[in-house]
């Protein structure tokens, strides 16, 4: 993994390598170098399989982190490529799609468009509804979306629901005299 990192580092401005396991590492790369890096990985380094594409909302930093997890089946190792992109407070973030390298990416991109509000212009059917139907609020995986509030406003609740702290409750049940 290290040696692969060294090799790639001479070509791209890569960040530090985070090795989670001997066969799983993560690197960060500026958004404009993502495509050449992915092409290099898939065409030259044997990382031919896109395992997943997902996002993390770093709301405090005003950024989205996109993680492209690639797998090299022959060498049995995985490499995650992380990209930080700006996160507008309202409206869509934008990123270039990679569906021309891996057609399966189009599905992930549709999901990200719907759940995080990250647009991938030109990606097939990216503007269509994916999982949600008739969604009316901001993308639900954004961290400033308050799921509890939304649920309280939108759905009828049955009264009488109680919540207890499990630790306190069990203590009371098992040791009622407080010992």
């Amino acid at each position: 993994m290290r040696e692969l990192h060294q090799r790639l580092k001479s070509l791209f401005p890569l960040g530090e390598l985070t090795e989670q396991r001997p066969d799983l590492g993560f690197v960060t790369v500026p958004a404009e170098y993502l495509r050449p890096l992915l092409l290099q990985l898939s065409d030259r380094e044997g990382f031919t399989h896109l395992v997943l594409l997902t996002a993390v909302d770093w709301i405090e930093d005003g950024q989205f982190q996109l993680t492209y997890l690639l797998s090299n089946r022959g060498a049995a190792r995985d490499l995650g490529v992380r990209v930080m992109i700006p996160r507008p407070a309202n409206g869509l973030a934008t990123m270039d799609g990679i569906h021309d390298i891996w057609p399966t990416a189009a599905t992930y991109q549709r999901e990200l468009r719907e759940m995080f509000g990250i647009d991938f212009p030109g990606s097939p059917r990216v503007d269509e509804e994916f999982i949600l139907e008739g969604w009316i609020d901001k993308p639900p995986y954004r961290r400033d979306f308050d799921t509890k509030k939304f649920s309280e406003e939108n759905f009828n609740h049955r009264p009488g629901r109680e919540t207890r702290d499990p630790e306190q409750y069990m203590k009371q049940q098992l040791y009622p005299d407080g010992k």
């Binding site: 649920s151 939108n154 609740h157 049955r158």
Partner: peptide, 18 residues
């Protein structure tokens, strides 16, 4: 019955009998 563990979900109904 009352939403169960999905009581605060953005996407599930909480009272079927409605």
């Amino acid at each position: 019955i009352n939403g169960g563990m999905y009581w605060d979900s953005y996407n599930t109904i909480k009272r079927l009998d409605d």
